[in-house]
């Protein structure tokens, strides 16, 4: 697939290699335990804007990890169940997301030069390089490739 790159964001790569996929974007912090169901990969927090949507295989773009200390446990089980996101891009570093990055084994980037929750929209085609810390928007949702 050879798309022209629409937008490039640069930040701190947290490892995990590179991948391409469809973005799922929220401006609300996400809870892990009690907020994500590892068995199905869906958001279950009743008060969350993504409630009912699946993160499985998506480029998950969100401001922060919040809530219970079970965040890494949920992402870890999701990886074993095959329901984990394909990559994670976030703004705020904390222990919950740091440990989840480690156990997810997927490309992750933070500290970007523009807020990814504003620069990228759900449905955009995105490439995440967790080693170089680069996010490329390859195609906007609905745009013809």
């Amino acid at each position: 697939m050879s798309s022209d790159v629409v937008t490039v964001l640069r930040g701190r790569g947290l490892g995990g290699g590179a991948c391409e996929g469809e973005a799922l974007v929220t401006t609300q912090a996400i809870a892990g335990w009690g907020g994500l169901d590892a068995r199905t990969g869906t958001v279950i927090e009743s008060r969350h804007e993504l409630c009912g949507q699946s993160i499985a295989g998506k480029i998950l773009i969100f401001p922060a990890a919040k809530g219970s200390s079970g965040w890494s446990g949920v992402i870890h089980l999701a990886r074993l169940e095959g329901t984990a996101p394909a990559a994670m891009v976030f703004n705020v570093m904390n222990t919950k997301i740091a440990l989840s990055v480690v156990v997810s084994h997927v490309p992750c980037v933070t500290g970007l030069d523009a807020d990814p929750t504003e620069a990228i929209s759900t449905g955009d085609r995105v490439r995440v390089d967790g080693d170089k810390g680069v996010i490329e928007v390859l195609a906007r949702k609905g745009a013809s490739a």
């Binding site: 200390s69 079970g70 965040w71 890494s72 446990g73 870890h76 904390n94 222990t95 919950k96 440990l99 989840s100 480690v102 156990v103």
Partner: peptide, 8 residues
């Protein structure tokens, strides 16, 4: 302490 997770 920070909020640790299962693995840490």
């Amino acid at each position: 302490t920070n909020v640790e997770g299962r693995e840490s």
